[in-house]
Design a protein around this nucleic acid. Structure first.
Length: 476
RNA sequence: GUCCCCAUCGUCUAGCCUGGCCUAGGACGCCGGCCUUUCAAGCCGGCAACACGGGUUCAAAUCCCGUUGGGGACGCCA
């Protein structure tokens, strides 16, 4: 087979959504797996709805997810002449004709057809008018074959047969001179030598209309692979009302791109029982044959779980790098981060076991970044009691006198203290935790101390002791 | 309405092409337990599905037909 070339062709009318990323991902994986070329093409022929901002957002999303393209972005609005030329060629060869029906007339006829229960189709009234030079606004229509069948051998769905009698004479050039989607797609796929068209299965019905166009234009017909749709929890097409559908929204909610990609690749594709795939594994293992033909429901819980998996198994350095922008966003500057003896990377191991998103990690990091610390009053009232004050004080004194601040040293000191006092670990750890973090929930107590550093550890325990003694005063 | 697609636990799926290894496996979620300095994580266990009806066959989740259900498309949007 000749060189494999695929493309992702979004229209820049809004944000890059989850479904689009999945389509881009499968194209990308297919290209990377086969050593082919991945082309990015912007389908912006609808000039009323396309925006420059949307183009930037699409590229930002692609970059964030790591789906890099080899060629493009090509913009269809830069290629208008190409479509015009091909359309005129079709006209001159009698394969296309001018249609002077107005959009309003067309709309009215569609309504009438609907009322009568007929199929919605252009009635062909301009087909044989033989208009050569329209003196009014006119659109150019392609003379679709009306007899026989068009057969698609879809790489995912198998053989699909369409009766040509259902085919419409579709408009290829609007009366404003711009090519329509169905035409520009074919011209571009042909001109760009696209070998495989991998797209959402909402395009299945467009395929039998495009195939005759490829043939009329003298292009080889590419292979088609129609990906199943992604549905919301109510089994209708995934949309905003099902929650976040923009990729960048997931970035902003603290998801790692590798987790999102991993989730998306499993929506419709599988490799045995494997759930977690590195990008390289996906590339090595990807095969269109393993793509599901049926639609899949988007499951936010599983995505969350995967994100948590990635957060706790990725290199701490990688997680820290993704985390820092979130810390800054939350108002913790370099100085705040510098309060942690080992820096931001040190936050990762202690915090990630209880975080599903980077945002969770930011929340968990607050006690180590913020000065002064915020004390949860309820927690203080319950744990910082008069009875525990002397124990905490003794611990602080021993830590202060210790030769170093190593975890082993601290553990040794605390265990010794507990033994001498005949206490249980929980009786001392909780008050200590509250004194150190202002909360009842935190990483292991020694990890907390490491994040705080010796100075702040001592200062906070002493403040806690103070408070516990005041509790005694209030009680007595 | 017309055309097209789809159909295994609540969800993602393995198995289906090349029937027997399936008393249908894994994962998320849920429930219970273990571990334990909190919360998590981890580990162990549990609940839970071949839509229905006909065929074909010694044998069907797997092949065929129908029914039902769901989705998508029918624009001078893409």
């Amino acid at each position: 087979m000749s060189h494999i070339r695929v493309r992702f062709a979004p229209s820049p009318t809004g944000y890059l959504h989850i479904g689009g990323v999945r389509t881009a991902l499968f194209n990308w994986l297919f290209a990377r797996h086969t050593g082919g070329t991945f082309v990015l093409r912007i389908e912006d022929t609808d000039r009323d709805r396309s925006t420059e901002e949307a183009i930037q957002i699409i590229m930002e999303g692609m970059r964030w997810t790591g789906l890099d393209w080899d060629e493009g972005p090509f913009r269809q609005t830069d290629r208008l002449d190409l479509y015009w030329e091909r359309a005129m060629d079709l006209f001159e060869r009698g394969l296309a004709y001018w249609c002077v029906c107005t959009p309003e007339e067309l709309e009215a006829r569609r309504k009438a057809q609907q009322a009568k229960g007929e199929s919605l189709k252009y009635d062909g009234r301009c087909r044989d008018r033989g208009i050569t030079k329209p003196d009014q606004a006119a659109a150019l229509r392609f003379k679709a074959p009306q007899e026989g069948q068009t057969v698609i051998n879809d790489l995912i769905k198998g053989r699909i047969v369409f009766e040509n009698s259902v085919l419409d004479d579709l408009i290829i050039l609007r009366s404003n001179g711009y090519a329509t989607y169905n035409f520009s797609v074919v011209v571009d796929d042909g001109l760009m030598n696209i070998s495989h068209v991998i797209r959402g299965d909402d395009h299945v019905n467009n395929t039998p209309r495009q195939v005759p166009l490829f043939q009329a234009l003298g292009f080889p017909v590419p292979e088609f692979a129609h990906l199943p749709m992604i549905l919301g929890s109510d089994k209708t097409r995934l949309s905003k009302r099902h929650g976040a559908t923009s990729v960048l929204a997931y970035r902003d909610m603290g998801y790692l791109p590798e987790a999102l990609i991993n989730y998306l690749v499993r929506l419709g594709w599988s490799h045995g029982d494997q759930e977690i795939f590195s990008m390289q594994e996906m590339i090595d293992l990807f095969d269109l044959k393993q793509v599901q033909a049926s639609a899949a429901v988007f499951n936010p819980e599983k995505l969350l779980w995967l994100n948590a998996q990635y957060i706790r198994t990725s290199e701490p350095k990688r997680v820290a790098e993704a985390l820092v922008p979130f810390l800054q966003q939350a108002g913790y500057d370099e100085a705040a981060i510098a309060r942690i003896p080992e820096g931001a990377e040190a936050l990762v191991p202690p915090l990630r076991e209880r975080s599903q998103t980077l945002l969770d990690m930011v929340e968990g990091a607050v006690p180590y970044l913020a000065e002064p610390m915020t004390m949860d009053e309820t927690a203080a009232g319950k744990h910082l009691t008069a009875a525990i004050a002397p124990v905490l004080k003794e611990f602080a004194d021993s830590v202060e006198a210790a030769p170093d601040f190593a975890k082993e040293t601290l553990e040794h000191l605390l265990h010794g203290l507990i033994e001498r006092q005949g206490l249980k670990m929980g009786k001392v750890a909780q008050p200590l935790r509250v004194a150190l973090t202002g909360r009842t929930i935190s990483p292991g107590i020694f990890e907390v101390m490491a994040l705080l550093g010796k100075e702040r550890t001592l200062q906070r325990i002493r403040a806690g002791v103070e408070r516990a003694m005041n509790a005694q005063g209030a009680a007595g």
